[in-house]
Design a protein around this nucleic acid. Sequence first.
DNA 1: CGTGAGCTTGACTAGGTTCAAACGGGGTGG
DNA 2: CCACCCCGTTTGAACCTAGTCAAGCTCACG
Lengths: 232, 232
Amino acid sequence: MGINCHTCKARTSQLCSVFEGDSIEKLFSVAHPVSVEKGGYLLHEEDSTKYVYNLSSGVSAVERLASDGRRQIMAFVYPGDFIGISSGSSYSISDRALTDVTACKWHMRDIEALYETHPELEHRVHEIATRVLAATMDQIFVLGRKNAVEKIAYFLLYIDKRQVKYDGHTDEFTLPMTRADIADYLGITVETVSRAFSLLKKQGLIELSQSWVVRLVDKELLADVADHYGPD
Amino acid sequence: MGINCHTCKARTSQLCSVFEGDSIEKLFSVAHPVSVEKGGYLLHEEDSTKYVYNLSSGVSAVERLASDGRRQIMAFVYPGDFIGISSGSSYSISDRALTDVTACKWHMRDIEALYETHPELEHRVHEIATRVLAATMDQIFVLGRKNAVEKIAYFLLYIDKRQVKYDGHTDEFTLPMTRADIADYLGITVETVSRAFSLLKKQGLIELSQSWVVRLVDKELLADVADHYGPD
DNA sequence: CGTGAGCTTGACTAGGTTCAAACGGGGTGG
DNA sequence: CCACCCCGTTTGAACCTAGTCAAGCTCACG
């Protein structure tokens, strides 16, 4: 899998950054590198919650699937992000790779063993949980109280904050997720996502060179739209 | 405020139960009892995150208010529940008392000081955070992928699980929140909440002796409705 | 007994879903 | 190499769920 801490995109993540310089080997020595190809699952609902993951490369989606096929994506996961925070003995969520993905997997027991020599580690794990919670609260507001266009504007700014930019173009990025994924993240349908993209394009707030390559032309205005769009 | 650990409804909460018997005084001695009357706020968005709260009596609502008046309730808080898990230096949420409320307030520093003598305490705090996260994930699914009737059925079962029952009636309870609160929790309008209640009543799944006194007649069927309601 | 906040109900509207068709681009096999 | 096909996307039109606006009701409280 060729994961190397020194070149890893997650090197500066909340977890790994506790270990400076070569001491990172202490953490890496108990890590189990995993790689999953696009469409596969890093994590299944029914899996035991013994393990936690730190994404090294690629993008994945934390999702829940109902018996009748309705899907809800809880979060998109980027390099350095954490997966596996859970209560109970099995996850109630799955994690699907949107691109080919590599990650470090740890037995939670091994992480906890490092708490003694690196007390800061425990604080970080706790910090990660509260940060995830804060992001989740944002999403609750978006799902409950925003209309389709506001949701898409919010989504684009959210992705913009996290996504690696193309070399020259500061505001252009490639979406790793399909329209269906976006729809399932925002609680709307594919068609509505597509119509909202078209509308923002027509208004000149964004440009789409390919359907999955987005350029944010006017972030200020986009933020206004994310705040409020509609009559008056 | 007359809070007394021995009669407190939160005595068996995740936090307090770490201290058995009279040792609870160690926790209580650093607590600041607070009481807020119906409609008041325990917590404001702009407040510092130094403090955490454990509700002793009453019910409150964790909410976020947008500048244009849109409100989203993140959770209803019952005795024993925690408030104040947050990242950053100020809360991005408020907590409004739905009834008269009493709570224990601690400086987070004082709780952390107790970690040394009671290591279990730190685990509990962490456990609380992950539990809150799990509940929040449930809500995301509900907001994103359930229709109005499913939302109400889900809501009633959710309240049923947490709410104190009337002496004789095992399945009858009093709602501390208004229809508007329910609407803001589920991301719908007051009218839609009211119509869904009427529909469930007409179908014989619930009874309403007063608009705020609910009896769940058939929980099994209600659970089915919460899972799926609509065409086919 | 009157008042008002909260709840219910009705009629209409609108935003989003559903169903359907057409488009586009990338990959495969002839 | 090109044609074809498939998957994801876009667009259109009809439909429907939930929102909006408005009126009337209930009940606790002064």
